[in-house]
């Protein structure tokens, strides 16, 4: 079985995230890391491999698109246990929207397929923690002509059959599909493992390739800020909320003050 897991390098959500003057996300000035939500995808990919067992050869390839430092994202995936990694990096990609990102991911997956066999599962996170659109997996499925089984909180497989559970907006559902498919998993799917010392050492010897747009046959004019199908006109920091009134509860005074406040704002 072949599994490609798409992982994104994102600015740390707990840091002070910013935009550049051209309204693109600042991916250099702010510390980045493998998106926490994609760790769940790596975990589920590794669990699929482990479940397939020793007899079947399963290759998990971690794939990222991003600036130079984005290699950290696939390195971490290798440390967790992925077998191979691909980092697509090209100046021209900077500022790409979902459409261009999904194009480059699709082309990279096609190249991985040509080099080492078609993926049975393209695994994604539920959303990136920066853009948080949650749309790249669906776009990827559309481009690759594959079904999508998304937002899984529980993943089960039997042969080429995939069954997942998901908490929809109005119902809890069981979704089924047949490989090959695009699968995305939520942060309910199970804690991601930490890289072990052994894993960290082993990762250093695992294959890690860096591809440019040229390697993928993608024209630079198809990607990047200028080619985006959407444009950001303005980014404004939300004015910090002005600190409100804070009272200490003493012998029930807190409840009374709270009730007074709610009444003064006409919530009662």
């Amino acid at each position: 079985m072949n599994i490609v897991v798409c992982v994104k390098y994102v600015p740390d959500a707990t840091a002070d995230r910013q935009f550049e003057s051209d309204n693109t996300v600042d991916r250099v000035g702010v510390d980045g890391l493998l998106s926490e939500l994609d760790e769940y995808a790596v975990e589920q990919a590794l669990q699929l491999k482990e479940k397939a067992g020793e007899g079947t050869e399963t290759v998990v390839t971690a794939l990222t698109i991003g600036p130079e430092k984005a290699v950290d994202a696939v390195r971490k995936a290798l440390q967790m246990g992925a077998d191979k990694a691909v980092h697509v990096s090209d100046e021209a990609i900077a500022g790409s929207d979902y459409v261009a990102t999904s194009l480059v991911l699709a082309k990279a997956i096609e190249k991985i397929a040509a080099d080492s066999g078609s993926p049975d599962v393209v695994m994604c996170g539920m959303a990136s923690t920066d853009a948080s659109g949650g749309v790249v997996p669906a776009m990827l499925a559309e481009r690759l002509g594959l079904p999508q089984v998304t937002l899984a909180s529980v993943v089960e497989t039997q042969g080429d059959q995939v069954r997942v559970k998901r908490d929809g907006d109005t119902a809890t559902e069981v979704i089924g599909g047949t490989m090959p498919l695009v699968l995305s998993v939520t942060d309910q799917s199970g804690e991601a493992r930490y890289p072990s010392f052994k894993g960290i050492m082993a990762a250093k010897k695992k294959p890690l390739e860096t591809w440019s747009l040229g390697d993928l046959g993608v024209d630079a004019g198809q990607v990047g800020l200028a080619a985006a199908w959407t444009t950001v006109e303005d980014t404004t920091a939300r004015p910090p909320r002005t600190a409100g009134e804070i009272v200490k509860d003493e012998d029930g005074s807190g409840a009374t003050a709270l009730t007074e406040f709610l009444a003064s704002k006409k919530f009662i």
């Binding site: 409100g244 804070i246 807190g254 709270l258």
Partner: peptide, 20 residues
């Protein structure tokens, strides 16, 4: 917050609920 109470929710909330 616009308004905050430093206190134990197990006492503050029931008392506030009663008043509301």
């Amino acid at each position: 917050v616009d308004f905050g109470v430093v206190g134990d929710l197990h006492t503050v909330l029931p008392a506030a609920t009663e008043q509301i």
